[in-house]
């Protein structure tokens, strides 16, 4: 089997790119506090990660059920053909997402953006 210098240059480029990607994405890898759901590129809703909730989303593409539970969020159910989204499991960190490609639906966890996030309400 023959691999040449150029092969290793290609491998090195890929490794450097992915390492850079890991570092870049990990800087944003903080604890999330909001769940943002987007359907077809437009925002469907934002929910606090801290309070349990089940959200049913019905769009022209199909229906999905997103569940927020104990500070994590996951796709509980979906009527898409591959059901990859349901298999993706639970996410908690900011930048993490569950994606249902056939329904063009993205469930993303975002970090608190300082001023606008409320940790608790005194009443």
């Amino acid at each position: 089997m023959k691999m040449n210098k150029r092969d290793f240059i290609a491998i090195a480029v890929v490794l450097v790119l992915s390492a850079a990607g890991f570092l870049f994405l990990n800087t944003k890898h903080a604890q999330g506090s909001r769940v943002v759901i987007t359907v077809g590129g437009s925002e469907y809703g934002t929910y606090p990660l801290a309070s349990d909730k089940v959200i049913e989303i019905k769009s022209e593409n199909g229906s999905n059920t997103v569940a927020i539970e104990n500070g994590s969020v996951y796709m509980k159910d979906a009527d898409c053909p591959d059901r990859y989204c349901v298999k993706q499991g639970r996410i908690t960190d900011s930048g993490d997402s569950v994606i249902c490609l056939p329904h063009k639906l993205v469930v993303e966890v975002c970090a608190s953006d300082g001023e606008n996030t409320i940790d608790a309400v005194a009443k």
Partner: peptide, 14 residues
Amino acid sequence: KPDGSDWSVAIDNP
């Protein structure tokens, strides 16, 4: 908070 910032506690508006 884990990110080192203060907690944001809102006061309810009745």
